Simulated assay, not measured.
Amino acid sequence: MSVLSHMDSMKKDMSAAEKKIYRYICKHKENIPNMTASQIAAGAGSSAPTVVRFSKKMGFNSLTAFKISLSAETRQPLEITGYEDVDPKEPFQSLKNKLANNAQFTISETTELFNEDTFKDACKLLESKDFCFVAGVGASRLVADDVTQKWTRLGKNIVYENDYNLLLPQLVTNARQSVLFLISNSGKTPELIAIAETAKEMRIPIIVLTQFGQNRLAKLANVHLQTSRPMEAEVRSAATNSIIAQFITIDLLFYLYISRNQKYAKKIFSTRKAIDQYREKYF
C-alpha cells in the first residue's frame, strides 16, 4: 500500500504532534529511510518514542518496516495516481476518467492491506457456526445484502437484520451457534456498536469490516477485516470508493471460503443451474 497516500488518508485521526511528523516525512521523504527516530523527531519538533508510535499507528510493526516501505515507494512510484475530487459541472469524459482512476486506486490500496491469516480466521468462524447474523447501516447495507446473497447460496443460515429489537431475541436464542458480521466503513456506527457490545457480553464471536485503523467496532471484534481509507469526493450523493473497497473484501472472503471445501463450489453450481432452469421454463 502507498505509504504517503495512506498517511494522507489518516490525517484527520492524527494528533497535533503526529501531524508535525507527517508533514516532516512528506517534505523529506527521500531522506527519511536513512534517518534514526531521534533525527526524525528533531526535525519534526517531536520525540523519538512519538515517531515510533506514529509508524505503528500507520500500520507497521516498527519504524524500520515503515522506512523500508517508504524507501521502496520513493524509488518506485505507483503508476496509479491518487484520489481525485469531482468538480461542479465537470465534463462527462473527465468524470468517467476520474471515477475509473479512483476505483482502481481504491482496489489497489485495499488489496495491499489484505492479510491471509485474518481472512482464514473469518472463514473458520463462519464455518464453525450454524447461524450468521449480518448488519450494516446506510451504504453498508448494500454490502450486508451482498454477504447475505452470497452465503445463502451455499446453504448457510444467514439473518440480515439491522433492527436491534428484532435481532437481539434471535441472538439470545441462538447464542452458542451464532457469529455476528457487522459492516461499517467508519467503525463508529452507534447502532452497530450497541449490537456488538451486547454480543460481546453474550460471548458471541464478532467479525467486523471497517476501514483501516483502530475504531470502536475493531476493538470489539474477534476478527477485523480492513479496507483502505478511501477519499470520498466532497461533491457526491452517496459513498462510492468505500463501497468498492468493501465489495472487493467480501468477494475475496467468499472465494476463499469456497476454495476451502469442494462441496461449496458444487452448491454454487447447483443453485446456478436451478435458476437457469427456472428462467428457461417461465421466461
Rank of each mutant, 00 (worst) to 15 (best):
E116A: 12
T152G: 02
F54R: 00
S94M: 09
K11E: 14
I158N: 02
L95R: 15
H224V: 00
I80W: 09
I207D: 13
S242V: 00
Q39A: 15
D276T: 03
G43H: 09
F114Q: 09
Q262D: 01
D145P: 03
S2E: 13
Q277G: 00
S2K: 09
F181Q: 09
V134P: 06
G82K: 09
A194W: 08
P49C: 00
G155E: 05
K120C: 07
K98I: 15
V179K: 10
D87A: 05
A103S: 10
M7P: 05
F66L: 03
G82F: 06
I250W: 04
D87R: 02
Y164D: 10
S62H: 04
V134N: 04
S128N: 10
Q211T: 02
E90T: 05
A135E: 10
L209F: 03
M1P: 09
K281A: 06
I25C: 10
S186N: 09
S94W: 05
N261L: 04
K98D: 12
D87E: 08
K129G: 12
E232S: 08
A245I: 08
Q262W: 01
G138R: 12
P33C: 14
M231F: 15
A265G: 05
L99M: 14
L171K: 09
V179W: 10
A239M: 00
A238V: 13
N162F: 05
I21E: 13
L4N: 00
E109F: 00
T118C: 05
A100R: 15
A245K: 05
S259H: 05
E116K: 14
D121S: 10
D8Y: 04
Q39R: 15
F247D: 11
R203L: 11
I80C: 10
K129T: 15
